[in-house]
């Protein structure tokens, strides 16, 4: 999916994207802006989207704390917090 299409169609809300997906989309946006093939309006839209993706990633990084789950049984006492 070219960025042109992406800019025009509905994209996932940044809060729903995983870190990996956010980064991939962000990389795509940066490349498109650098290639300079977008119209002015598309550039501005892409830039806005890029900024919200960056914010999303940063909040994921800042809010990181260790989250552990166990599939079967109970977490050992020393790990459960």
């Amino acid at each position: 999916m070219g960025l042109k299409d992406a800019v025009l169609t509905d994209l996932s809300a940044p809060e729903d994207l995983s870190l990996e997906a956010s980064l991939a989309e962000l990389e795509g946006i940066v490349r498109s802006l650098e290639e300079g093939e977008l119209t002015l309006e598309e550039s501005l839209k892409a830039f806005e989207r890029g900024v919200s993706l960056i914010r999303r990633c940063n909040s994921l990084l800042d809010g990181a704390e260790q989250r552990i789950e166990i599939l079967v049984g109970e977490l050992p006492e020393d790990l459960a917090r």
Binding site: G63, A64, Q66, R67, I68, E69, I70, L71, G73
Partner: peptide, 12 residues
């Protein structure tokens, strides 16, 4: 692993 953005799931 420490504090990382990923969820950690233990499969015993």
């Amino acid at each position: 692993l420490g504090a990382c953005p990923a969820r950690i799931v233990i499969s015993p």
